[in-house]
Amino acid sequence: MEFKDYYSALGIDRTASDDEVRKAYRKLARKYHPDVSTEADAEQRMRDINEAKDVLGDKEKRAAYDALADRVARGGSPEGDFRPPPGWDEGFEFHRGPRQGPADHADFSDFFSSLFGEAERRGAARQNFRARGEDHHAAIEIALEDALNGAEREITLRAQTIDAQGHPQWNNRTLSVKIPPGVHPGQFIRLAGQGMPGHGGEPPGDLYLEVRIAPHKLYRVEERDLYMTLPVTPTEAALGAQVQVPTPTGGVVEVTVPRNARSGLKLRLKGRGLAGKTPGDLYLLIEVAVPPADSDDARKAYEQLAQATSSFNPRQHLGV
């Protein structure tokens, strides 16, 4: 495990004031917000800066982290092989109240969890704090076929325990999750009792898995609707045609391409999207595919077409 430098994650000095920590965090959170950032690693950077803010924005955690950093600097822990020394947090007390927002720190690094995860629970126990465990949020990416037909998927969760020597250690547990048919992106699947442990004998929280659909070679998913590009020949586009189209459930349907169809035209197959109270639709985006003029016959056919449509000017709107 690597020792994480939270100050460099936020681009600040160790002497930074609380206000400077907050400002640095907000500036970076805007930069790496998934709706505005074009950086490839924006999601990971958001996790890193959230983690750094969680520690440096809390007086107790920051003081304990600083003390640990000094101890590590003195002890010369080998790079990439950091383990928190037993009792490193003596004299400090961390706990999350029950009303501090979503438990995003469940997604933080092993480094964070080994330092603060168990310590927060011990802090809560020392205070005789009783509350149901926090709900945990995570995402699950499934194939479109699994969203349509339902599936059973395994996910692995990490849980931390303290060994006999006082060292935190990780145990993995594998959950088999039933994906009901008809789930759509953004929908949450709830796993009762699989969230954070309860405090003071209270029950654990729940785990909420946000559904994400993996990119598909044919279909693109927008909420409950599906989009597919449908290539047609210039003849089919001009004269209209009946063409066969694969459906996401594995069948094939015949679709009418209207006469004088142009690229970008959208055909809707109602109710052929993802299932639900109001099922989604399947949209077909027409794309005119031009046959290559790679034979005498093809070239001749193009020349005849040019003669027959000589008054057609596709650049008329350009004024030329």
């Binding site: 029950p98 009303r99 501090q100 927002g101 979503p102 438990a103 149901r132 926090e134 709900d135 949020h137 959950l175 088999s176 999750v177 039933k178 994906i179 009901p180 008809g182 789930v183 929908q187 949450f188 699947i189 709830r190 796993l191 009762a192 699989q194 929280g205 729940d206 909420y208 639900g276 109270k277």
Partner: peptide, 24 residues
């Protein structure tokens, strides 16, 4: 192995108290 999963939907919605707990 877990068997009880619920997809939050119109037929299986969240109550106000459950929504509140889910977001802390």
């Amino acid at each position: 192995t877990l068997t009880s999963t619920t997809a939050i939907s119109a037929s299986q919605p969240l109550a106000a108290s459950e929504l509140a707990h889910a977001v802390g």
